[in-house]
Amino acid sequence: MTISLAIVGVGKIVRDQHLPAVAGNADYRLVAAASRNGRVEGIENFGAIGEMLAAVPSIDAVSLCMPPQYRYAAAVAALDAGKHVLLEKPPGATLSEVEDLAARAAEKGVSLFASWHSRHAPAVEAARGFLAGTRLRAMRVSWKEDVRQWHPGQAWIWQPGGLGVFDPGINALSIVTRILPQPVFATGATLEFPENRDAPIAATIRFTDADGLDLLAEFDWRQTGPQSWDIEAETDAGVMRLSEGGAKLSVDGRLLHAEPEQEYPSLYRRFAALIRDGRSDVDLAPLRHVADAFMLGRRTLVDAFHD
């Protein structure tokens, strides 16, 4: 079965990742796009999802890639039209709206996929297997990058619901919640807000689990030069390091796993499999941890941020 796919929200992530991944997957035929500003050459383009769904009834599935604050209404429109839906990360602006989408998808008998692309990094499953076979003592997460490099001029990330530094930080949390042998929960957080913005530019969160795990996560959008996307775990079998956003796994400095990055091609293979099997995949654990950090976090003001 070839899936007739439409993409909504044609921005940087669509051009960099979604379009190449879809073009390289024979399960899909890209038939339409809807976006206020962007266009995709060679297919039908529309200004809004409602217009697109009405004009192209042959669409089987929709990838929603607009900012999270606007995703719920678009997802409802697609689900109510009987379309399978892929949600770019984060899947929505709130937990409640995504839970409602999951219920709607089940009611309509279509697939809903909350896609956490960082879970599809090459070494993540190897890290999960390693931690399953040893005792974990402590974990440190360092996710620090330059917002000007990755989100140039994007105002939505600083607005309520845009998550601020948790936009990349949730990638780390999606990996952590995948590789840990049991659930963790936040015990405290510090969130640093620029004095002229409504979302944090940095965050530090402490987590634990039922066995008293010491887990510290540090997210920062002010890092220039080399970028840091690392998870380090102290275990009885040695120090495990998952680096470069999940691309490489080493233990005590010895490289055990490294493969070329294929996150978005893997996402679309997963989405096709869900559609074929008539299933959904909506794991809200990473977004729940972000919500908990906002609930528990001590807020501090820092210098204003200007693009």
Rank of each mutant, 00 (worst) to 15 (best):
S4P: 04
L287I: 14
D167I: 01
F193I: 10
G162C: 08
G133M: 00
V98W: 05
V282A: 03
L86Y: 13
A293W: 11
S266A: 14
N45A: 01
V56A: 14
P122S: 06
S35D: 04
V184D: 09
E259R: 15
G47C: 01
S4G: 11
M66V: 13
A258Q: 11
A26Q: 00
R119V: 11
V8H: 06
S4C: 15
P260N: 14
M52F: 06
P67I: 14
P20M: 09
R279T: 08
L87P: 02
T94S: 15
A199G: 07
D281H: 12
R36L: 07
R71H: 12
A293T: 10
H306Y: 11
D220A: 13
V8R: 10
E263H: 03
A48M: 07
W143V: 04
H117A: 15
R298A: 12
E263N: 06
A291M: 04
M295D: 10
D292G: 04
E145M: 05
V56M: 14
R222W: 01
P20I: 12
D146W: 14
S280I: 09
R206I: 01
T134S: 03
R206K: 05
F166E: 05
S63H: 15
K144D: 03
Q159M: 02
T134H: 04
H306A: 08
W229Q: 04
A258T: 11
A114D: 13
H84V: 07
G11Q: 02
P260I: 14
G169P: 00
A34C: 06
S115R: 13
A132W: 03
P181S: 03
P152E: 14
H257R: 08
P181F: 02
A210M: 05
V98M: 03
G161I: 03
I3D: 06
G133E: 03
G212R: 07
M295Q: 14
V141N: 01
L19M: 10
A34T: 15
R206Q: 09
R104N: 08
W150N: 04
I205F: 07
E259S: 12
G24Y: 12
V176T: 09
G47E: 00
V165D: 04
V8P: 00
L267S: 13
V302S: 01
P160S: 13
D277L: 11
T187Y: 10
E44N: 12
Q262L: 07
T2R: 15
S142I: 03
N37P: 02
D252F: 05
D211E: 06
L301H: 03
T134P: 02
W229S: 04
I13F: 12
K108I: 11
I179E: 01
H306D: 07
D307H: 06
R254E: 14
